[in-house]
């Protein structure tokens, strides 16, 4: 930890709908972005469904909040770790996920992907390197 900046990891394990955890986790991420911390998000287990493209919630009467993930770059939240094994176990691939990017201010505002697909053991390393883990 340097200069009062902590490494925050928000762990998303649940499907986007069916329970409110995913939506309320995203609300914490958005508020937390104002605190200038080093923020990452992790998606594993059913949490990988949160990032899928083409979500349509009309028939279940709840808000489709998936477009918000594409706005995270504007909040300087640019590291979205997705566990490969969780995708595989659910028959998903990287192509099923939304195209989420950010503009890198240290690289002439080049557009770069925010989603980083990592293995289960790499995800363990990501978690081990954090100061604060909030699990949803």
């Amino acid at each position: 930890m340097e200069d009062g900046v902590k490494k925050f990891l928000y762990v998303n394990r649940k499907a986007p709908y069916g329970t409110i955890y995913a939506l309320e986790a995203l609300e914490v991420v958005l508020i937390g972005a104002a605190f200038d911390q080093d923020v990452s998000l992790a998606f594993l287990d059913d949490g990988v469904f949160q990032l899928t493209k083409g979500q349509d919630t009309k028939e279940i009467g709840v808000k489709n909040f998936s477009p918000t993930f594409r706005a995270l770059g504007d909040y300087e939240v640019t590291k979205l770790y997705v566990e490969k094994e969780s995708l595989d176990e659910r028959g998903l691939t990287a192509d099923d996920l939304q195209d989420i990017t950010y503009e890198d201010e240290d690289d002439d505002w080049a557009e770069k992907p925010s989603i980083l697909i990592v293995s289960r053991s790499e995800m363990a390393d990501v978690m081990a390197g954090q100061d604060v883990i909030l699990s949803f």
Binding site: K6, F8, V28, I31, G32, F35
Partner: peptide
Amino acid sequence: SGLGQLIEMAI
């Protein structure tokens, strides 16, 4: 109070 209190607590 607000969610900021959660982040502040974690810091």
